[in-house]
Design a protein around this nucleic acid. Structure first.
Lengths: 243, 243
DNA sequence: CGTTCTCTTGACCAGCATCAAAATTTGTGG
DNA sequence: CCACAAATTTTGATGCTGGTCAAGAGAACG
């Protein structure tokens, strides 16, 4: 897994150096709904938490006493089944908000896939702020809609049987949900392993690897590195994903 | 498909006979957040629309200029893929709200599975009301969370490979999402066909039928009628769904 | 430079899809 | 109310995709 050149942590550690006002993730976050003049309210509630690769932010079934906003890096959100199978519910990138559903316990475990930072809010205080601020509540509702759409996209992918369309659909969507990704357009960054892609798509890592090889053999993709793909024929990828 | 004994349509046709105040679906709906004193605001915006079995409420990719609340009966929400495959995103029952995501176009087609009624709101007017009423907005956010949880449950089901656990999980959840279902506890009403269950679970109708037969052979279920099952061994069903 | 982890590729097999037909239920019209 | 027609469900036979097991190649890290 190739670590990124470190992105300046937004809502930055230290808080002094610009704070939320200079946060690189704010344009993609619910915080964008809060005008600059009122940012101090947000900053007063939040703490910055850096995460090392593999470190857990919370575990499934733990009480959800806090909510989070991802400000850099990426995380995996997964649930372990009784038989040991791991279903990855989603990958979280800068701007994603964690804790929308208001459930008492976390549905899954969240772990960093690479160095990451999140803003941490006590749930009660955040909900109090939400109740005061109409703009924030509307932004949360809007983001909940986006997350529901993402979950439905995953359902559509998992419902289709073949492995190749599942992977193609995932690769098409990935750049969209990773707003701060670096690198040239037409390239796809994969901060997750083959096994994680497999657990997201309901496949095995061998099948994912074979599907990637097939796409390379057909000239749809080429590999810049293990974790960086180049899309050679975007239309072909799109056709596989949908048609 | 056995039609239910008709439920008195809530938010009833005619509107005069009690209106929202006597709506049987209100306890399960976002409308519950609106106090009795303010119900007139809701009623002024809404129109009751009855649906015949098979009738479409809207079609995928159509502009979403209205939102709906199901007040009786049930609907299927599905999306047709380019290859003709049908993925059923969910089944809608009394109390379910349609139009949470705020997207410009419908993600899928909604069709009644049995005689049903919905309350219809012009989207712009409903959003204006939402912006005024804190209680309604909070209820919508809460319901969005519930729907996200349902979608994630479907992801967890589709991600698991075997057919039997998928069906078992679906049968376990169905009674919970159908709050106004009639009939004795321990019985499961299936307003949908085997083919629709299959398209929801990413299986074929033959596989669903075989899985049902297996559950009957093992004594987990028995059939009251084609569309009504009796759970003989709830623990066994639950074990199949999770373990 | 060696250890460890991840990825790739191969061989084989099981479970589900597909094709096909019979049984059951539902709906319609006399 | 019965008989017939249409639709749905059940069951069977066969083939293929993807899972499982296994081994080797390539990267990452100390």
């Amino acid at each position: 897994m190739v670590a990124l050149a470190p992105i300046r942590a937004p809502c930055a550690p230290g808080r002094t150096a610009g704070g939320c006002a200079e946060c690189l993730a704010r344009p993609f976050s619910v915080c964008a709904a809060v005008p600059d003049a009122d940012l101090a309210e947000l900053e007063a509630l939040s703490q910055v938490r850096p995460l090392a690769p593999g470190e857990a932010l919370f575990r499934q079934d733990d009480p959800a006493t806090e909510v989070f906003n991802v400000s850099s890096g990426s995380l995996r959100l997964f649930r372990l089944a009784a038989d040991g199978r791991r279903q990855i519910l989603g990958f979280l990138f800068a701007g994603d908000f964690i804790g929308l559903t208001g459930e008492a316990a976390w549905v899954g475990t969240a772990e960093a896939m690479e160095p990451a930072t999140v803003c941490r809010f006590p749930r009660a205080a955040f909900e109090a702020l939400t109740a005061q601020r109409r703009d924030l509540e509307a932004a949360l509702l809007s983001r909940a809609g986006a997350e529901l759409a993402a979950s439905r996209a995953q359902v559509l992918r998992l419902g289709g049987r073949a492995a190749l369309p599942r992977l193609a659909g995932f690769l098409c969507d990935l750049p969209r949900i990773d707003p701060m990704r670096p690198g040239a357009p037409g390239q796809i960054r994969l901060p997750m392993t083959r096994g994680e892609i497999a657990d997201h798509l309901g496949l095995t890592l061998e099948t994912v690897s074979r599907a990637l090889s097939t796409l390379k053999r057909r000239g749809v993709l080429s590999q810049v590195s293990l974790s960086e793909l180049r899309v050679e024929r975007p239309e072909a990828l799109d056709a596989l994903a949908n048609g």
